[in-house]
């Protein structure tokens, strides 16, 4: 299996500066200044392209094209990462078009390639992250939104960042996307026979968040994987008008 070796010393701003950002409700880093090892992430992404373009897939040609593009244009992957970190969907679509790939595939691979660097950054920032609870609807580390949540063994809700994989505690009643706290405008649904897998929805901003209850499931897989394993709930949420 391919492995990244992030071996650099990222430039971390002073603790005091980060403290002020945190106090004012700003994430520690914005998409522009995330101190990630992009070199290691780029090497990993190239390995993904190389490996997947040899497998029997419909988008095999696109993946080979992406590999070619990243070899010909050394800045291409850098630009891709920049667009992913800034959540620039339009720019991402253009880049995916260049190599005839589905933008979602490119985004998924790019995010996955960034993960080892993010976990490195999380380790470096552990002290400030653990200092006190964050409690806001976006990620303390990178400011992105949650893609999934879990209930811990004590019933607390923990949100999972869609970009960096950081988890943080958030109140049980409330929408992390629009901060709606009115229980009349919030709700959840679960499928019969699938107790412990809930989809929380907000009738104010019409967003939803899948949640897995670790009091029900003995073992919870990494939430990236749980998210894929519960795709049917996304379909049901979309059908009900949530996005």
């Amino acid at each position: 299996m391919v492995k990244a070796e992030p071996a650099h010393d990222p430039k971390i701003p002073e603790h005091e500066y980060l403290e002020i950002r945190r106090k004012d409700g700003f994430p520690l880093f914005s998409g522009k200044n995330l101190p990630l090892d992009l070199g290691a992430a780029a090497a990993l992404l190239k390995k993904f392209f190389a490996h997947l373009s040899k497998t029997n897939r419909k988008d095999q040609a696109g993946l080979a094209k992406a590999l070619e593009q990243s070899k010909n244009d050394p800045q291409w992957i850098g630009r891709l990462f920049k667009n992913i970190l800034r959540h620039d969907e339009k720019a991402l679509e253009v880049m995916a078009g260049q190599v005839s790939l589905d933008p979602q595939t490119l985004l998924f691979l790019g995010k996955t390639a960034l993960r080892p660097s993010f976990s490195d950054l999380r380790r470096l920032m552990k002290k400030i992250i653990d200092e006190k609870p964050w409690g806001l609807g976006y990620c303390l580390l990178c400011g992105s939104q949650p893609d999934m949540a879990r209930f811990t063994k004590t019933g607390k809700r923990s949100l999972h960042c869609e970009l960096c994989g950081q988890e943080w505690a958030f109140s049980r009643i409330g929408c992390p996307f629009c901060d709606n706290r009115d229980p009349e405008n919030l709700g959840y649904f679960e499928a019969e026979g699938e107790e412990g897998l809930r989809v929380y929805s907000c009738n104010s901003c019409h967003r939803y968040l899948k949640t897995i209850d670790s009091r029900v499931f003995e073992e919870v897989a990494p939430l990236e994987l749980e998210s894929l394993a519960t795709l049917h709930l996304d379909l049901i949420a979309n059908r009900s008008g949530y996005k």
Binding site: T112, E192, E224
Partner: peptide, 30 residues
């Protein structure tokens, strides 16, 4: 998670769609 990276991309949505259709959904409020 590595398995997800590889398999997740090649996922065929049809069986998932049929699974979603067959479920009975209960809506609740907290």
């Amino acid at each position: 998670a590595a398995g997800a990276a590889i398999l997740g991309l090649a996922l065929n949505l049809n069986p998932i769609k049929s699974h979603a259709q067959s479920l009975k959904i209960n809506h609740c409020k907290e």
